[in-house]
Simulated scan of single mutants.
Amino acid sequence: MNEYVNLESFKPVTQAFGADTIIVQIDSILPVRSIGKTVKASHKYRQIACSIEEIGIVEPPVVCKDKQNPDIFLLLDGHLRLEALKDLGGTEVECLLANDDEAFTYNKRISRLSAIQEQRMIAKAIQRNVPREKIAKALNINVRSLNRKANLIDGICEEAVALLKDKMCPMAIFDVLRKMVPMRQIEAAELLVNANNYSVGYSTAILAGTPQSQLVAATTPKRMKGMTAEALARMEGELSRLQQAITSVQDTYGQDHLHLTVVKGYLAKLVDNSKIARYLEKRQPEFLSEFRNIAQMTSTIGSS
Results as ranks from 00 to 15, higher is better:
V93D: 08
E94S: 13
C95K: 04
L96D: 02
L96C: 03
L97K: 11
L97W: 12
L97E: 05
A98T: 01
N99W: 03
N99L: 03
D101T: 07
E102P: 00
A103Q: 13
F104W: 11
T105M: 15
Y106Q: 08
Y106L: 13
N107D: 10
I110P: 05
I110G: 05
S111K: 14
S111C: 07
L113K: 15
L113H: 12
S114H: 12
S114N: 09
K124E: 07
A125L: 15
R128V: 01
R128M: 15
R128C: 09
V130S: 04
P131N: 14
E133Q: 04
I135N: 04
I135C: 06
I135P: 01
A136W: 05
A136N: 05
A138P: 00
L139Y: 10
N140R: 03
N140K: 10
N140I: 00
I141C: 00
I141Q: 02
N142C: 13
N142G: 14
L146E: 03
L146R: 04
R148N: 12
A150W: 00
L152R: 05
I153D: 02
G155C: 07
I156L: 06
E158P: 06
A160Q: 14
A160W: 14
V161G: 03
V161L: 00
V161A: 14
L163N: 14
D166F: 08
D166K: 10
